[in-house]
């Protein structure tokens, strides 16, 4: 396990970020913090992808001049798309949170459930 720290550190950080994100989504009762957890989970997956395309001592994939080795461009492209989709998702989620606050007057999950039971 210890030898993995040197050679697989990025992947261990990926596991840590996914764990922190999942904890945030499931444990936080505040809806805004749930979305923060979702974003951290997502960045963990990004780290997995970008690391998979990295080669030691590689240059960024600017291929017009100079010579390799280059990092693989494909994971970068996929993650660029995923970042933009992620922020769209966050925007919609936060808009829904603003409406939930208008309707229930609270962002606490347990308090919202109580209001629903009383109605």
């Amino acid at each position: 396990m210890i030898d993995l720290l040197g050679t697989h550190y990025n992947y261990l950080v990926f596991v840590a970020l996914v764990a922190i994100g999942l904890y945030g989504v499931t444990a936080s009762t505040n809806l805004v913090k749930k979305i923060i957890g979702l974003n951290i989970f997502q960045v963990g997956i990004f780290l997995f992808f970008v690391t998979s395309g990295y080669v030691d001592g590689a240059a960024p994939p600017l291929v017009g001049h100079g010579s390799g080795p280059y990092a693989s461009p494909l994971p970068h492209v996929l993650i660029l798309t995923a970042i933009v989709v992620g922020v769209s998702l966050t925007a919609v989620a936060l808009a829904l949170i603003v409406r939930i606050y208008e309707a229930y007057g609270t962002l606490d999950e347990d308090a919202i459930r109580e209001v629903q039971l009383n109605d």
Binding site: S52, V63, P69, P73
Partner: peptide, 18 residues
């Protein structure tokens, strides 16, 4: 991390794009 014979680094897709 960073090994030159990793599947993504040596994949045909990566080589084609580069």
């Amino acid at each position: 991390v960073g090994s030159a014979d990793a599947p993504v680094a040596t994949s045909r897709v990566t080589e084609y794009y580069l």
